[in-house]
């Protein structure tokens, strides 16, 4: 009984419970990776093989490494993700600064507009953008996808960044301007470096959103040379039928950059999530 009480006091009992729940929660992620490392025979084994032993890379070889379509689509996703990230930072940083610091007429309306944009369903934007981009010949291009993705990352970025600018002491700007900086010069050289954590949060999110976006990928591209990995994975569902190890190999390949970025930068992701979603 004493041991039980000690366990309670240290909180290790809660740790145990949490480990158990989180492990159970993450089972689908494990199952994806495990299936991708199986042979065809092992995929259909009954009862299912819980640990892929011996792990085999043949599904990756066939569906990822030796499939130019998959490799191309992963490269496309990287380009679209990075493009979305850059465009978002470029547009959102000065806008968030202006909304935090400068007294603008209509600032409230602007913030409201951004909030509403974030809540729109992608399908409402996809059709008009498809019509617009078809008319100006932008279908099947990286800019089409980057522009469309930024519709959702921009409001998020401004909302996350604005509070960071609010915490920068006003005296710093005044001092920089007294030293002969223009307002824009003070912004670029003095203010922006101070909000680096916020910029990193926004950069990570914009990249992840651009990487994982699906509806625009499907509606604004038809050309396999441009199509992102999410659209490619969706096509493989029909193509691979029941060759689940291959489908899971592609799914894992699409997920790995997310998992790596997540592992390295989770601090920024958690803070971004809470900052961007609940509080304005």
């Amino acid at each position: 009984m004493n041991g039980w009480r000690a366990l309670r006091r240290s909180g290790l009992g809660w740790t145990l419970l949490a480990v158990f729940l989180v492990a159970g929660y993450l089972f689908p992620v494990y199952w994806m990776a495990a299936t991708s490392l199986k042979t065809n025979a092992a995929v259909y084994a009954s009862p299912p093989q819980m640990v892929p032993w011996p792990p085999i890379l043949s599904a990756y070889r066939e569906a990822v490494f030796n499939n130019p379509l998959t490799l191309r689509s992963i490269l496309n996703s990287a380009i679209v993700g990075l493009g979305t990230m850059l465009l978002t930072l470029l547009l959102a940083t000065p806008a968030a600064y202006a909304l935090a610091r400068l007294k603008l007429r209509g600032a409230t309306v602007a913030i409201l507009l951004l909030l509403i944009t974030q809540l729109l369903p992608a399908i409402v934007i996809a059709t008009p953008l498809f019509v617009l981009f078809s008319r100006i010949g932008l279908i099947n291009s990286y800019p089409a996808l980057i522009l469309a993705n930024t519709t959702f990352t921009l409001p998020f970025a401004v909302i996350v960044l604005r509070p960071f600018f609010l915490t920068v002491p006003r005296e710093l700007e005044a001092a920089a301007q007294m030293d002969g900086c223009t307002q824009f010069g003070a912004f670029v050289r003095v203010i922006v470096p101070l909000v680096q954590p916020g910029l990193l949060t926004v950069a990570v999110f914009a990249f992840l959103m651009g990487w994982g976006e699906f509806l625009f990928a499907m509606t604004l591209t038809t050309n396999e040379a441009i199509q992102p990995a999410t659209a490619a994975l969706n096509k493989f569902i029909g193509q691979y039928g029941t060759e689940w190890n291959k489908l899971m190999a592609v799914a894992t390949a699409v997920a790995i950059p997310i998992i790596v970025i997540f592992a390295g930068l989770q601090r920024y992701i958690v803070s971004g999530l809470t900052a961007g979603a609940v509080k304005e």
């Binding site: 989180v22 929660y25 993450l26 994806m32 569902i237 489908l247 997920a255 958690v270």
Partner: peptide, 21 residues
């Protein structure tokens, strides 16, 4: 933080995994 992984995965990935499960 680990739990958030489920939310961060692209929904095409989680959709494929659940299709399989």
């Amino acid at each position: 933080a680990l739990m958030l992984l489920g939310w961060m995965l692209p929904s095409v990935v989680s959709g494929s995994v659940f299709r399989w499960m």
